[in-house]
Design a protein around this nucleic acid. Structure first.
Lengths: 121, 121
DNA sequence: TTAAAGTGTATAGTATACTGTATAGTTGTG
DNA sequence: CACAACTATACAGTATACTATACACTTTAA
């Protein structure tokens, strides 16, 4: 269990952003039992894992709302197994689509590179 | 050569968005020679190609600024061949990175699916 | 020839995802 | 015990990427 400063350090995500993610329901910590002098929030390894997943998903164009769907499917106890699987299956389809698009982009860029290399001044 | 309405129809991108892209230098059309009664702008197939590339690149998390770099490397005459190749090579590296991240996400989701399927109520 | 539909410019507003600032309280170290 | 460093909350501001609205003019079809 760690405080937000440590979580920021381990994840590479700024404290402000982590607080923003917590406010929007992407991650959550909890108060330490028996502590009454402050309201500091402690985070476990699940929070770190979520932050790492958020980073990856964001970099390939998923919105925070889309990412939240996946995280909810992972952690929400009141969600049925079937509903969780449905969310995750859809996400895999979207991921495969993105991989296809990236491969098409790569191809297009390679063709363009050849055009540039072979053209006269 | 087509007007903006036709280009929007062919690309599936709203007219407002196309105008926004033109204003930000992502695409460009030209006025028809000899026409003086209006200032309508006509677009060629290059504009359509650019719009299709923009759609792909956006969906995998590239920003418009990043996309503009690639489009400039494709179309800007005053850019050296070496500079163009450099931009495109970097983009291919970024694309490969994104493919790796998508594959990692897929793996993570598959593991999670197995966990959900095998857990007791 | 007039009304609908299309074109252009300008500007304001919205959604998403932060980012910064102010304020106030808590903890740890020399 | 001072004081730096950390914590929390609240709210304002910014960047990116649109999206909508107002206004004026042009083209096209009945």
């Amino acid at each position: 269990m760690k405080l937000i400063h440590q979580l920021a350090k381990e994840s590479g995500i700024p404290i402000g952003t982590i607080r923003f993610y917590e406010k929007t329901g992407l991650i959550s910590g909890q108060k330490k039992d028996g502590v009454t002098t402050n309201n500091y929030i402690y985070y476990g390894d699940d929070a770190l894992e979520k932050l790492q997943f958020i980073q990856m998903a964001k970099s390939v164009g998923f919105t925070l709302a889309e990412i939240k769907e996946v995280i909810d499917a992972w952690y929400r106890k009141e969600m049925s197994r079937a509903a969780k699987i449905k969310v995750l299956d859809l996400k895999v389809v979207q991921i495969n689509q993105k991989i296809k698009e990236l491969q098409a982009m790569k191809k297009q860029i390679e063709v363009c590179k050849i055009n540039i290399s072979t053209q006269q001044e």
